[in-house]
């Protein structure tokens, strides 16, 4: 759901940069204060994996496709939504500059939608549900809802921009991403979180002690 150049007028692009900036700044201070030295290779590995998986579009019905975003996965493993914000910011900047995937002018909006909204919604959904559903169910639900809500945010932004009609934009973006959220985001997030929690929970303090849950 990378927004290209031209879909949002420049003035509105500036507003989305301004809205995303405080979260990016906060994510840098999170990394400085909270991220352990030992977690940095893990953070970099997750970033590389999430870049790669974003190139793997999976087919969905209606001649459409979609890929995982990954901010929720990073946030759950590293224990903070700001981990997802920082990681997605890095991935989205590299994609826009090197690969023309997502417009350079739309970078603020793309960071806000995929880095901030998806990550926060997904992380707190996971936190809220893990007691009741366990980590597999909660990370599935977090991945799915994070992607779905961020797709609706994109639809609203594009309606404000005059690029999409509001009701139909919400309907199509919601429908497509509800399905992408099931087969890409929800599935991969929950499988990776559960696997890591079993194999090496000691690497991720957030997951240590969750295996039995």
């Amino acid at each position: 759901m990378h927004i290209p150049d031209g879909f949002i007028p420049l003035g509105q692009c500036a507003i989305y940069f301004a809205l995303a900036l405080p979260f990016v700044v906060k994510s840098i201070s999170w990394a400085r204060k909270e991220m352990e030295e030992a977690s940095m290779p893990l953070f970099a590995t997750l970033a590389a994996g999430i870049f790669a998986i974003q190139a793997m579009n999976v087919p969905i019905p209606w001649g459409t496709s979609g890929h995982m975003v990954g901010g929720v996965l990073a946030a759950i493993l590293l224990g903070s939504p700001y981990a997802g914000v920082l990681l997605l910011t890095i991935v989205l900047v590299i994609q826009a500059l090197l690969f023309a995937d997502g417009g350079v002018t739309a970078l603020g909006a793309n960071i806000l939608d995929m880095g901030v909204i998806s990550t926060f919604v997904g992380f707190y959904t996971y936190r809220g549900l893990k007691g009741r559903l366990g980590i597999f169910g909660a990370s599935f639900a977090g991945g799915w809802l994070g992607l779905f809500v961020s797709a609706l945010a994109v639809a609203v932004e594009l309606a404000i921009a005059g690029t999409f009609p509001l009701a139909e934009g919400l309907m199509f973006m919601g429908l497509y991403h509800a399905v992408i959220g099931l087969i890409a985001e929800g599935m991969i997030t929950s499988v990776v979180v559960t696997t890591v929690a079993r194999v090496s929970p000691e690497l991720f303090p957030e997951l240590a002690g969750e295996v039995a849950a």
């Binding site: 793997m56 579009n57 999976v58 087919p59 209606w62 459409t64 496709s65 797709a151």
Partner: peptide
């Protein structure tokens, strides 16, 4: 990877 347009493009 599927060559189909993604959700936003569709």
């Amino acid at each position: 990877a599927s060559p189909n347009p993604d959700g936003l493009e569709s």
